[in-house]
Design a protein around this nucleic acid. Structure first.
Length: 570
RNA sequence: UGGGGCGUAGUCAAGUGGUCUAAGACACAAGGUUUUGGUCCUUGCAUCCGCAGGUUCGAAUCCUGCCGCCCCAGCCA
């Protein structure tokens, strides 16, 4: 097998990917099927935004096409003008490009095939395999039977072909109201598989389509359109999710009974689910329209736009999908795996900078007034090539409020009265005095520094357990920082009926008095960094402005101190 | 006995009769290193593969029965 394993990211020898779908592709290739071609597709319906669940399907289909030297198509499955809009088409293409899947010049629409589909429908009628049915919607349901009882044949089942052909033409031309007729395949009303009980091929919808305008008054159903679209495009492996397993016999029936140019095969896999979130389009839409989130790009959403704004990269999403694997078992992946994926990447690539989120003033009493010195700070300890930068230091600085405690447990290695800590890249300081306001709240710390400890070196080998980040006061940049947490407080928010009841009231915390080191004032979009000891952050693409930045927390750092403390409390 | 699918650690997931006294990842736990209580390193984490029988010298892998979960009765996709 000759294949250069390329794909973005990761180390040298990336193992050849293997799962039941890729195994099947290899078998097909070995058996010489499809003239040795591999051709996949992603077929979104343009009726909503893409989310992380879709990325599994996109990356798998696209990835397979690349791994086997094949091709990948994007096809909008636009057979229902009632729900579909052009706005979604643009957004979907944008998101797929961002993910890194490339359909090159093969952008298609099921609506491109309406003409061909119509001719094939006529073919089925002539063959005695389809008929125009006049049953109402309720009657169709009634005649279909139930999962345990066979259905009954429609009274129109034996309508002469000429008559069906004529009626179909009239339906197409808008001569009948919606619901008056449908075109149905003549298969088996007693079939154990409900999908095979004379399924509908066409329904009347006297409604303009976003691409074909008012050319059609009938539109094909999914089952009739999908496989034929695959056949027309020469798709070899049509990958979809588990719920379409029962549709496969029907998919195959059309391929066998129509003069299609090619016989594609459908393969089903489990969709991606994540804890602490919802994945259904309907629920996502509800969260947006009811204002539980700010929009489709709310950083708490697992839409691709939301994740992007949150600071997730396409490669981190790809890592997640690789780790999750491909199988047929319904499963729900721990959200922690997604967080691990982005941390793993950002640890390697994001520069470390200092930001104080909840500031507490520190005055260094023995530091000369009015003096500012610039200290060297390394950008990324994981990557020396990222170099260094200069950060200011002076008599007044900000530290994190939670890094000081007047009364602290012995395991608290941070600042407390009389104790010494290191300021990252700067000096050792000792807390001499705690200044409080009338209400008793700590408003300032008065400390002294050891000039010999410049750069954070211990001058005499003495140990300091704690290292704190800080921001020099006169050069500090004021910023807004948004801290995000799970949108839902339960790992399975849909359990127990009302998923909205499980919304996490603390999923967003906005901090407006944050202090950043000066270099961050002009941080542009697409900037990812680690706020030392605070987490990974990115510039908000919507609200941030030069000079008045807004940062979003992508993910926290692992925090073994928090765990320790939590354990102590219990 | 309606049909279709799936059941391997807390979560994903390899495994297709002997090399399985069952990979790997996440999570979790313990220890070490550390100018991020971050990273990194070390170690631990299923005598057992939904359950019960059976076949076999030998089974997570084959057979039988049972149990559980998911999908199908849209003129949605």
């Amino acid at each position: 097998m000759s294949d250069e394993t390329k794909s973005a990211g990761k180390g040298a020898e990336e193992a050849e990917k293997s799962d039941f779908i890729r195994e099947r592709v290899r078998q097909d290739l070995a058996a010489g099927r499809n003239e040795g071609r591999v051709h996949t597709r992603f077929p979104p319906e343009p009726n909503g935004y893409l989310h992380i669940g879709h990325s599994k399907a996109i990356l798998l289909s696209y990835g397979i096409s690349q791994e086997f030297g094949g091709q990948f198509n994007l096809r909008f499955d636009d057979t229902n003008p009632e729900k579909e809009e052009d706005e979604y088409v643009q957004a979907i293409m944008e998101d797929i490009k961002w993910l890194g899947a490339d359909w090159e010049d093969r952008l298609y629409h099921t609506s491109d095939y309406f003409g061909q589909l119509y001719e094939w429908a006529q073919h089925l009628i002539r063959e005695g395999k389809a008929y125009v049915c006049s049953l109402t919607e309720e009657q169709v349901r009634e005649y279909r039977g139930t999962v345990k009882e066979a259905g009954r044949p429609s009274p129109d089942r034996d309508r002469p072909a000429e008559e069906s052909l004529g009626l179909l033409e009239e339906m197409k031309n808008g001569e009948h109201p919606e619901g008056a007729y449908t075109l149905r395949a003549k298969i088996d009303m007693g079939h154990a598989n409900m999908k095979m009980r004379d399924p509908l091929l066409y329904r009347i919808k006297r409604m303009p389509h976003h691409r074909t305008g008012d050319a059609w008054n009938i539109y094909p159903m999914y089952d009739y359109a999908h496989g034929q679209g695959d056949a027309i495009e020469g798709i070899t492996h049509s990958i979809c999710t588990l719920e379409f397993e029962v549709n496969r016999p029907l998919y195959d029936w059309f391929i066998e009974n129509l003069p299609v140019p090619h016989a594609p095969r459908q393969i089903e896999m489990a969709r991606l689910n994540l804890t602490y979130t919802v994945m259904s389009k309907r629920k996502l839409l509800q969260l947006v329209t009811e204002g539980h989130v700010s929009g489709w790009d709310d950083p708490r959403l697992i839409t691709l736009r939301g994740l992007r704004r949150r600071g997730y990269t396409a490669s981190a999403i790809a890592t997640l999908c690789d780790r999750v694997g491909v199988a047929k078992r319904n499963s729900t992946v721990d959200f922690a795996l997604l967080e691990w994926s982005i941390r793993e990447e950002l640890n390697r690539t994001a520069d470390r900078v200092m930001a104080v989120l909840r500031p507490l003033k520190v005055v260094i009493t023995n530091y000369p007034e009015g003096e500012v010195e610039w200290l060297e700070a390394e950008n990324n300890p994981e990557d020396a090539a990222r170099g260094t930068r200069k950060i200011p230091f002076s008599r007044e600085i900000w530290i994190e409020r939670e890094d000081f405690r007047e009364e602290a447990p012995r395991k608290f290695f941070r600042l407390k009265p009389g104790s010494e800590v290191r300021l990252k890249h700067a000096y050792f300081i000792t807390c001499d005095e705690v200044v409080k306001d009338d209400s008793g709240e700590v408003v300032e710390l008065r400390c002294s520094y050891d000039p010999e400890s410049r750069g954070g070196q211990s001058p005499d080998g003495r140990k300091v357990r704690g290292t704190l980040h800080f921001v020099e006061a006169t050069h500090a940049v004021e910023a807004e920082v948004r801290l995000y947490d799970h949108l839902f407080r339960e790992p399975f928010p849909e359990e127990g009926g009302d998923f909205l009841a499980n919304l996490n009231p603390d999923s967003l915390e906005v901090l407006t008095d944050c202090k950043l080191e000066p270099g961050l004032a002009e941080a542009g979009t697409d900037y990812h960094c680690q706020f030392m000891r605070n987490g990974y952050f990115c510039v908000d693409t919507v609200d941030s402005r030069p000079g008045v930045p807004v940062f979003n927390r992508t993910a926290t750092l692992r925090d073994s101190w928090a765990k320790l403390e939590a354990k102590g409390k219990k």
